Simulated scan of single mutants.
Amino acid sequence: MQILLLQTWIANIGNGFIDKGARVAIERAFPDAEIIEASGHPNLVGGRKTKGFLPNVFSSRDESAYGELYRHSSQTPLQNIINVGELVDVDVAVLPGCILYEHVLEKYYPVFEKLAEDDTPLVLLGAGGGDYDPETQRYVKQFINEVEPAGIITRDRDAYESYSDDVPRAHDGIDCAFFINEWYDPPTATDEYDVATFDKQTTPKIASDRRTIHTDHYPFEQPYGNLWQKIKKMKSQWKLFNKENVFVSDSLRDYLFLYANTRVTHSDRIHACVPTLAYGNRAQFWFDTPRGTLFEKVLDEDIQDKPVSVDQSLLKRAKQEQVEALQSIISHSL
């Protein structure tokens, strides 16, 4: 069997943890399958180039209807871009991550068109949304009605309750990045330290007698972003580089080394906390977002109140259930 793993983009390094965690889940479900990875970066570029260098100041949303960016224009970068996923013959495609909103689905429109043309089933794995507002749900349901995914494994209860009735098969699962410790086993660090990863707000005062390493999850700033995105990122990085012990890398393994060895991770980034928990360490999440409900699937304590760790036996069970659900959904789709 050949399985196409459609990835998003590592403009945000945390997306890479999702992609590699998804690969682990697929390998566990189908150990003999050939997995073909296809980055969504071309589609990010095409989408952003199509939207232009100046932001739409009148709306916080990208598009109001599924396919609007692609279909309601001609000879745009999004129409001209090519993705590896359009050039391979596979049995099934899998798209993981925070994908259930227009920011991702619009950019992947041409790939979905090709999958439909080839009668290739699509499975959404560890899927969640940026939010679950009525407008977002309406948009995602348009996508589901047009693309007809074979099934969905969600990463939070809100996503499951919003979309499980719209697909043939669904499972109330967990975020794919919880599998990341099975993808890479980092060496042991020589020093003790904490990690602070804050891209959205000012780093809070952290009480610790250990060194604090300040990481940035946007190692490439905002590639092909509009003017506002670039200015906003540059401004936040000016503050970052005035700190001591700053860390920026283009390597997933470098970040995972830090999260596997940290005593505590403090962050407003979900995917600084998830790998920290997966490696058995403590994390505290410092941001209020609908995406944060994914922690409720594996934690008994509130990760926003204090540093917490995950019950590894509970996590192991949830991961096995996710693997079995993926086996079932893909087997029924073929």
Rank of each mutant, 00 (worst) to 15 (best):
E86Q: 14
F143T: 04
A29C: 12
G126P: 03
W183D: 14
D131W: 02
N43K: 01
R48M: 15
Q137A: 08
F53I: 09
Q322A: 12
E182H: 03
V274P: 02
R269M: 06
P31W: 07
T197F: 02
Y66R: 01
I3H: 00
D119L: 11
W183P: 01
I330E: 01
Q327F: 02
D300T: 07
T136Y: 04
I330K: 00
S249N: 10
K230F: 05
H271W: 03
F257E: 02
I231C: 07
I3E: 01
D91K: 06
W238L: 05
Q7Y: 07
I81H: 04
G67M: 03
D300H: 05
K51E: 15
A93P: 05
C98E: 15
K200V: 14
A25M: 06
Y224T: 04
D254W: 14
I152P: 03
P275R: 01
D172I: 04
H332A: 15
H332M: 06
D175L: 04
I206E: 01
K51C: 13
L315F: 13
F178D: 02
P134I: 09
R48V: 11
I13S: 06
K205I: 06
E68F: 13
L124G: 10
Q222V: 09
V246W: 15
D133W: 11
T190K: 12
R155Y: 03
K239P: 00
V274E: 03
F53R: 08
L78C: 11
R71L: 09
K297Q: 13
V92P: 02
E221N: 11
R317Q: 07
N181M: 04
P110V: 07
K107L: 15
L227K: 09
K319M: 11
S313Q: 14
L227C: 05
Y255E: 02
E301W: 03
V94K: 00
T289D: 15
K230Q: 05
A189Q: 07
S333I: 05
K243M: 04
K239H: 11
F17C: 15
R253F: 08
S249I: 14
S208H: 12
